[in-house]
């Protein structure tokens, strides 16, 4: 594994919340991508953490664009770089709302067209920027400002939707495993065509846990099997080592849920839904890895 470079592309003056794993994720993404990179950011927490015009905390060009428009904007950018013969990485860095909800049409279009870009969805499982309203990515039972009694539906299966487009590379990641994240971004950028990385992004104010625990929350998500680290390269699935271990000896889901205020008082039905989604995802990935389906 390559060493993570010391260069920083996200400077020490962001307006991120304390303990924000979005900025941690972005730090490793940019270290992997390097300076010949443009970031396309739709409305999301990252729109804010860059700072206020005319200042910016980012040391690469960042194109901020309307909520539903990121993947389409990146399509145009990628085509323009191609027309100009420039080899510049185009990376969409979008939240879950801008990906699974309002941005999914543009995402689907860009993947279907085979756009040469990397789409990263950092997923804090709600509309964080506007104060934690439910999104399609909010898991069952989670309280948000628009699901005060806990969400009644399960989390939208974004990865299955993306997989249906047969991209050459897709993966999941989490900033609690920085080397894994770093190497996945590097690998993705070495491949032509549409690539996708889905990053779980624990959010202290949104999930209601204390802000020093973000790395730990990401690890608990993986160890409990609530978040599975894997890659799908040209259709071939590899479940990564931390999740392999978790499949053999998982920590109880409750250990992941308990520190999070959003799951406080979760109903047994919602808990069962969370458990069954996690089990279904694990089973499906295992079968895919073994080549059974």
């Amino acid at each position: 594994m390559t060493d993570i470079p010391r260069e920083e592309y996200i400077l020490k003056c962001t307006s991120a919340c304390a303990g924000c794993s979005d900025s941690l994720t972005l730090r490793y993404v940019l270290k992997a991508a390097g300076p010949e990179t443009v970031l396309v950011v739709p409305a999301c927490c990252t729109s804010v953490i860059q700072g206020i015009y005319p200042n910016t905390a980012m040391n690469i060009p960042v194109y901020n664009v309307a909520f539903a428009a990121a993947a389409a904007c990146a399509s145009g950018m990628s085509a323009a770089f191609q027309a100009a013969g420039r080899k510049t990485n185009v990376i969409v860095y979008a939240g879950d709302g801008g990906t699974v909800d309002i941005g999914i049409q543009a995402l689907s279009g860009a993947f279907e067209r085979g756009t040469d870009f990397l789409y990263i969805c950092y997923d804090n499982e709600a509309y964080g920027n506007t104060g934690m309203q439910r999104s399609g990515a909010t898991p069952a039972g989670a309280r948000t400002t628009t699901t005060p009694g806990g969400k009644a539906q399960t989390k939208k299966d974004l990865d299955a939707i993306v997989a249906a487009h047969n991209p050459p590379y897709m993966a999941t990641a989490c900033a609690s495993y920085p080397k894994d994240l770093f190497s996945k971004v590097q690998k993705a950028l070495s491949i032509r065509g549409p690539k996708f990385i889905h990053v779980l992004s624990p959010c202290p104010p949104g999930w209601r846990y204390s802000s020093e625990k973000s790395v730990e929350m990401g690890k608990l998500a993986v160890r409990s099997g609530m978040w599975i680290l894997y890659e799908r390269e040209f259709g071939k699935v590899t479940i990564n080592r931390p999740s392999k271990a978790a499949m053999i000896r998982p920590v109880p889901i409750e250990e992941y849920l308990e520190p999070q205020g959003r799951f406080k008082g979760i109903s047994p039905e919602a808990l069962a839904m969370l458990r069954s989604v996690a089990e279904r995802n694990a089973e499906r990935l295992k079968r895919e890895e073994e080549g059974i389906c």
Partner: peptide, 21 residues
């Protein structure tokens, strides 16, 4: 770019235009 909607048509033009083409 045969985009999937007009919203994306203008978004793609924006993304392309800002590179200077």
């Amino acid at each position: 770019i045969p985009v999937e909607s007009e919203h994306s048509a203008m978004a793609a033009c924006i993304g392309a235009s800002v590179t200077g083409v």
